[in-house]
Simulated scan of single mutants.
Amino acid sequence: MPLLDIETKNGFTYPIIYKEFFLDGMLNVGEYGPDWYTTVYPKLKENPTLLLHSYDFELLNLKGVNEAIDELSDPEGYREIKEEFKFIPFGQSGAGDHYCFFVNEENNGENPIVFVWHDMNEVNYLAKNMQDFVFRMLLTDMSDQDVYNDVSDEEFKDNLERVLKTHKKYLTDKQNDVLQTVFNREIIDYEILLPKMKEAKRGLLTDVELKKTLAEVIPFDKMDSSFEYSSES
Rank of each mutant, 00 (worst) to 15 (best):
M1E: 15
P2T: 14
L3R: 05
L4R: 12
E7V: 02
N10V: 08
N10M: 07
F21R: 10
L23C: 12
M26C: 12
L27S: 09
V29P: 04
V29I: 15
V29H: 09
G30M: 00
W36G: 01
W36N: 02
T39I: 09
V40K: 10
K43S: 12
K43Q: 14
L44W: 04
K45G: 01
L52G: 03
Y55F: 11
D56T: 03
F57V: 07
V65L: 04
N66Y: 03
N66L: 12
D70P: 05
L72A: 01
L72M: 00
S73P: 01
S73Q: 11
E76D: 13
I81W: 03
I81L: 00
P89G: 00
F90H: 04
G91I: 00
Q92A: 10
S93M: 04
F101T: 00
F101Q: 02
F102M: 05
V103R: 01
E105C: 11
E106D: 05
N108D: 15
E110W: 04
I113L: 06
I113D: 02
V116H: 02
V116Q: 04
W117R: 14
H118D: 12
D119R: 12
M120C: 14
E122W: 13
E122H: 14
Y125W: 10
L126I: 10
A127D: 08
N129P: 10
F133Q: 08
M137E: 14
M137L: 10
M137P: 09
L139M: 03
M142F: 08
S143P: 00
N149T: 11
D150E: 15
S152R: 05
S152T: 14
E155D: 11
N159I: 05
L160G: 07
L160V: 00
V163I: 14
L164G: 07
H167R: 10
K168D: 10
L171S: 00
T172W: 04
Q175K: 01
Q175C: 05
V178C: 03
V178A: 02
V178K: 05
L179K: 08
Q180F: 10
T181G: 13
T181N: 15
V182A: 01
F183S: 01
I188E: 06
Y190M: 06
E191V: 13
L194V: 00
M197T: 12
M197K: 15
A200V: 10
K201P: 06
R202C: 11
R202H: 06
L210M: 07
K211N: 12
K211M: 12
L214W: 01
V217Y: 01
V217G: 08
F220T: 06
K222M: 11
M223T: 03
D224A: 10
S225W: 12
S225G: 09
S226I: 08
E232H: 15
